[in-house]
């Protein structure tokens, strides 16, 4: 019991990380391995019950030679929540997990080969918005599990890269295969999938599509679409995603408002960001495992985020979720983002 498989996994990874740090000889003084991530404190009040969650999510990125990058992120959190069932006081549970541990081999200008445990490329939320210092809201979208095969991580290989990149348009792609893994630290399902997106840098418009196929006893297909529009100097950024699974589907649309344009620099007015997210899910047949609500659901999230100097941000939000029952959810989070080299260069 002293060393559970979970802890052993984490220690093994830490050991691997340490040896990588020692092995990696930066090619130039700009290639020093880095440690980054976020540390924060989140509260979530749902139907009068508040959960408190201290969380830290460190990331390591270490280049090896000219073509390889090893990257890994872990999340360690404790949640303290009311005992419930007529008992007073709080109880807690902890979570310690690796989100990914991957080796990226930059094979050519258009191709990067990824091996290991990686974030499943489906839609945008998982790869881009899930880090605690990035997300505008403390809770993931209701459709998060569709296409990310429940665990959000895959164990296997992925090919990705930029197919076209010029001043007018960028086209990127990612395709992966994942094996089933029940290992405590590397949980994944047998699946494969792909995503491509087109980005128009002048309009700052991105559209993309994702596909995933679960290859366990039952084979299931997931499809997704995303649209992001973040016009330069506009006072609003729009992000949206739609996902469809065999038993349910849904979408979210998020807008981030600014009280001043980006070109005015990071002023106080720019640092205050009202955010709004509208979500809807639709259930076509029962599936207790797909992660979506059991009945059709609508949810409005109203948030106010403040970006402080020294990489501190505070997110606060009120959500109203209507399904078979209406619930009010209040969430706050304070997050500090850290970023430093692992050692001093020459």
């Amino acid at each position: 019991m002293l060393l559970s498989p979970k802890r052993a996994g984490i220690y093994a990874s830490a050991l691997l990380a340490a040896s990588l740090l020692v092995m990696s000889r930066p090619g130039t003084t700009q290639d020093v391995p880095l440690i980054s991530g976020g540390v924060g404190f989140v509260t979530s009040t749902n139907a009068g019950n508040t959960t408190y969650i201290p969380v830290i999510s460190p990331l390591l990125a270490a280049p090896l030679g000219n073509h390889i990058l090893v990257e890994s992120r872990a999340t360690i959190l404790d949640s303290y929540f009311p005992k419930g069932g007529g008992h007073s006081g709080y109880t807690s549970s902890s979570f310690l997990g690796l989100s990914y541990l991957q080796m990226d081999y930059i094979a050519s200008s258009h191709l990067t080969v990824v091996a290991g445990e990686f974030l499943t490329p489906f839609g945008t939320y998982n790869e881009r918005l899930s880090p605690i210092w990035i997300s505008n809201f403390e809770s993931a979208p209701l459709i998060f599990n569709l296409g990310t095969m429940n665990t959000g991580s895959s164990v296997g290989g992925m090919l990705r890269g930029s197919a076209i990149s010029n001043d007018h348009v960028w086209l990127d792609y990612a395709g992966y295969f994942s094996a089933a893994s029940t290992n405590e630290q590397f949980k994944s399902q047998r699946a494969s999938g792909a995503r491509t997106s087109l980005y128009f840098p002048q309009a700052r418009l991105e559209v993309g599509g994702s596909y995933g196929r679960l290859l366990e006893e039952t084979h299931e297909n997931f499809e997704g679409l995303h649209l992001w529009w973040q016009p330069a100097d506009a006072l609003v950024k729009l992000r949206s995603e739609f996902a469809h699974g065999p038993h349910s589907k849904g979408y979210w649309v998020e807008s981030e408002f600014h009280l001043a344009s980006a070109s005015s620099g990071m002023t106080l007015r720019r640092a205050i960001q009202p955010v709004f997210r509208w979500q809807q899910t639709f259930r076509s047949s029962p599936d207790p495992t797909d992660g979506l609500p059991g009945a059709d659901t609508k949810r409005a999230d109203f948030g106010l985020d403040i970006l402080f100097p020294h990489e501190v941000r505070i997110n606060s939000s009120y959500s109203r979720q209507s399904s078979t029952q209406d619930t009010n959810i209040w969430q706050t989070g304070i997050v500090y983002r850290f970023l430093f080299p692992t050692w001093r260069g020459k």
Partner: peptide
Amino acid sequence: SSRISGTILRHMRVRASLSPQD
């Protein structure tokens, strides 16, 4: 720190599918 700018760019190149020229 400029000592990690290359590492950051390599990381973001993979994450954001930047071309080598970018």
